[in-house]
Design a protein around this nucleic acid. Sequence first.
DNA 1: CTAGGGTTAG
Length: 891
Amino acid sequence: MNTRKLCSLSAGSRDFFYTSLSNALSSVTNQRNLRRIHSLIITLGLHNSVLFSGKLISKYSQFKDPLASLSIFGQSSHKKNVYLWNTIIRAMTHNGLYSTALDFYTQMRELRIVPDNYTLPSVINSCANLLDFETAKLVHDHVLEVGFGSDLYICNALIDMYSRLNNLDRARNVFDGMSKRDLITWNSLISGYSSNGYWDEALEFFYKLRMVGLLPDCFTVSSVLPACSGLMEVVEGQLIHGLVEKIGVMRDVIVSNGLLSMYFKFDKLVDCEKVFNKMDVRDTVTWNTMICGFFNSSLYDESIRLFFQMVHDFEPDTITLSSVLQACGHVRDLKSGRSVHDYMVKNRYTGDITANNLLINTYTKCGELLASREVFDSMKSRDLVSWNSMIIGYAENEFYEEAIELFNMMKMELEPDSITYVILLTLCTQSTNRYFATQLHCTLLKQGFDSIITVGNSLIDMYAKVGELDNSLEQFENMEARDVVTWNTIIAACGHCEDCSLGLRMISRMRNKGITFEVPTLLSTLTLCSFLGAKRQAKELHGCIFRLGFESDVSIGNAVIEMYSKSGILWYSMRVFKLMKTKDVISWTALISAYGMYGEGMKALKIFQKMKKVGIVPDHVVFVAILFACSHSGLVQEGWDCFYQMKNDYSIEPRKEHYACMVDLLSRSGLLAEAEDFILSMPQKPDASIWGALLSACRSSGDIKIAERVSKRLLELNSDDPGYHVLASNVYAALGKWDKVKMMRKSLRARGLKKQPGFSWLEIQNRVYIFGTGHRFFEQYKEVHDFLVVLSDLMAKEGYVADLRFALHDVEDDEKVEMLCGHSERLAIAFGVLNTEPGSPLQIMKNLRVCGDCHTATKYISKILQRVILVRDANRFHLFKDGTCSCGDHW
DNA sequence: CTAGGGTTAG
């Protein structure tokens, strides 16, 4: 029928069409038909009717066309009534235009029109979505004012609103004031408690609900399940699971997803599988929960496998992709990572920033930096995380300059955040670019990032790791706010810089502030105690660990093993190792290192065999320990075996530490030429630590020719570590080339590099006494000096001749002897002998390596005085007994 | 119900 015909109809017929149109409007199912009816209404001139305007407004809003609704409302301005106002408010809320809805509500109030009980829930809902607490209170007052205070729907909406505004007291008040409640009332309150983390209350009301005889539905259950997880109430969770099966909401996907998530939180993977297999309807969230759950349970391969199973008949979303990419990165599964990437490209998922950021991350972890960069460059828009991820990629793969370059590029596009600075400060601890560290510190000060605690913590750590404890300390003292990590970091800093007394002071300051010790606190404290090597302190700390209940922590156990071994009680290390319930590769490494330090290479090898037998896969660190052990026991063949085993059986590329150990092993065993060839065959450029290892061995073996050649190489590297300069300068001193020595001293001073001063210390009756080389001002100095003179005579009679090559100054020979006698370890030994019972063992600690002459002298002293002397130097233990040393001169 | 970057520790 055409329009013309319609217009010429009689009044009765018009009534008929009026009703038909109204019915058609109510039952319209798509937007196209709605538009047709709309134009018909206009043609018929019925658009001024309040009824049709209202119906059109709500229909357009149903089909998500709020602009159409708005224009109809605007056009009928001359005769708006309550009905239209209500309709437009509901329409706006329904389409998420909450502030517009509230504007209409305000206008309505100004016109003194009261919304009906169907519209007020919409108004309340808008307040909730806008998180507008002030308006929320006004609306609530208005509700009470107009007498809707006990309306079920309105009260339900109010509870929901206050829950979302995180004001559970008000939600609870509304709940308590209601005379009639339905399941939605209960669900709103329970979900409010649950989503705001009030687990106890959520469970409490769940039980109350059951007591009043109501049957929970899928919404109730999915609200209360997180509360079970949150409270770690596995039994409650299982009970609810049982209930769910009984009342039959099991078929609901949301409920099953909730059960899955709960069982994953309790690590009940078997139950997860059961629930998953029972589900006949699954959705994307189901798969995401599975993939993410396996990831969180460290079953990365399983989560990758599930992804490829999922894509057969399900479309993943960006959350799925993010989860699976994380898993790929974790296990460095480049192949799967690439497949996921391919999938993303083929299915046009490449616009998601998060997924791309994770792609960068995955490729980075697999060492595929070019691929990371390709993703980074291909991104249409990048956020902070993109830049930070790419910088981390460069930093983790030791491309420090590239990381810095990217940071400079980043600054042109957007403001770095505190995390960027933390990343770069961490980079500074590894890179040797000290200039950049200063620059970075200045920039972050200018931007005010020094007030962010994590940045401050990273500054403390950075300065300590480049050896500038003073700067760490200054940063620490200047901080206005500190957290537990700050304290842990400053204590660790003292450990890195070997300042025990400062470390111990920091620990007591921390305790006085009432800050709770954490695992890292104790780990740092253990490191300090290991360095100190004092038996009493070591045992006290171990007791403290028991009292605090940290004894079962694996990393703590590992550090305790190290502490006892470095304190000269290897037996305790073994006992702690045996008592540990779980041991990781680090525990075994700690024990192997311990035996290595005592020169027990064969035992270390046996432990290594046992470790492999119980199924622990060796990592690169344990190979450092085993090579170190071989080198300190002169086990050349065994060392080579391990070196090749590492490459061939475990595909671990040797790092410079491994090369340094091998060079050490070869050169200590007198194979200097072989060691030099080995260095020249290295795939990487040998650094100072490698040449340094050869040089120190040359010195003890007395091969001056190679020594001079190696010194030259070492100096060419121009390392910042003063130790190597001192080593080279000692070679020239031994050669008598004093001009060169002087020149080097000068250049060291000019560059501000200071040789670490030598210190020795020992513990007598719970007190630690420290001696520095050439120290004269301590109690009993005269007695010690006189005793050393007497001792020299006795030693001379036994055949001792001072090895003047170890006196490092250009002075007369008798003065050189005098200087050697002033070496800190000799002072400590003499002091120890004078202050302990004759015949009792002595234990001396030294921060540097023991000098050759002192080593010989100590052998004589142990024989003449019949004392067992245990000396721990920077590298290992020497047990002097009756004129010999346990190191067999391999040191 | 599910998602991305950082500090302390061998």
